[in-house]
Nucleic acid binder design. Sequence first.
DNA 1: CCCTCAACATAACGCTGTTATGACAGACTG
DNA 2: CAGTCTGTCATAACAGCGTTATGTTGAGGG
Lengths: 198, 198
Amino acid sequence: MSSPAPTDQPEIRRRLIEEAARILGEEGPSALSVRRLAAGAGTSTMAVYTHFGRMSAVVDEVATEGFRRLIDRVDAVGLTADPLADLRRMAGAYRENALANRHLYGVMFGAVSVRGLGGDGPDEEVSRAAFEQLVAAIARAQDAGGLRPGDPAPVAAQFWSALHGYVMLELAGMDQVVDDPEHTVLWSMLANLLSALS
Amino acid sequence: MSSPAPTDQPEIRRRLIEEAARILGEEGPSALSVRRLAAGAGTSTMAVYTHFGRMSAVVDEVATEGFRRLIDRVDAVGLTADPLADLRRMAGAYRENALANRHLYGVMFGAVSVRGLGGDGPDEEVSRAAFEQLVAAIARAQDAGGLRPGDPAPVAAQFWSALHGYVMLELAGMDQVVDDPEHTVLWSMLANLLSALS
DNA sequence: CCCTCAACATAACGCTGTTATGACAGACTG
DNA sequence: CAGTCTGTCATAACAGCGTTATGTTGAGGG
């Protein structure tokens, strides 16, 4: 019941989502208002409510779109014969994507709220797909002998937690913790995790 | 220049901060408005602006207060003869404090914005003190032989990143990742980190 | 042709953060 | 002691917010 049926105008619906993602990325969450969004998409505020029901549903869609883009960016690193190196490069792509789209990244994890509008969060199926992408990479490393065999899901959860935490501290500007131009803390942490799991 | 000098009425200033922390904790960020805050503190909205200049400065003060409370809670676990066990208990207290004050925890890291008001973040000196608390615990474990000798700061940064990431995923409700009633992912992750550093 | 209904525009409601203005008390100054 | 000045707070206004009520429009079916 999050959306009152995609109506029959996917055109405007898509334009609204893209414009919302653009405003969020370029001007931050405080600039994303119904009126600015509607004006930017060349329509009126009511279009937002016919297509999404409420503003927070638009934010949820944008968050879902953020996970889709994240999946694409991480997929783009490709696979090599060294699954452990692939994991490191995936982590690098993950971090760079998060920093290049910091507001979007915050919204994806319900961290940054757009003007206090509490939504339901992104589509669970899509965020789960992002996790499964990491699970598959862990499983590949296990099969190749780079990691000890076992259930890959908890391993992926550890990997993601550590990576997410570093990125969040970096985005929060906690330079005392991540005063780390070469990100050696990140790479050491991931290396430590993986070595304990190998 | 974040505050127009604490004026000469520390009484009302303190009441405003405490009331803001109470509203944030009990009703969430969307309930924290200037009018509600002023009414709850028994004054008018102008008092907020005489004492803090703008609403976001109040949020920054609340975030700083959150770090002070976090430090106290983590300190309360005390020290034993086993520094590694102390670290685990500190992590448990950290996590429980974050979950018991989820809105405050989000505000502390600039993650949850109160209705889109972007502040300057908490007092850097206090958040640094929280980090130093962890650095000291790591150094103690190194001195006791539980961890390999070396600079404790990067080790503490790894530990905090991992812990913070797990807690944030938990708060975000990413149950796919942390579907983990016994928090085995958290404890395994920290154990893996520490074992690679020992 | 007319009727219906989904899609959108216009305008209003109560709320928000912020600021302008004014009242009032206490402390200096002559 | 009178006067002024300054810091503190109350009142009220402003533009903007999310949301909703109401009006308009245009295409498809009887």
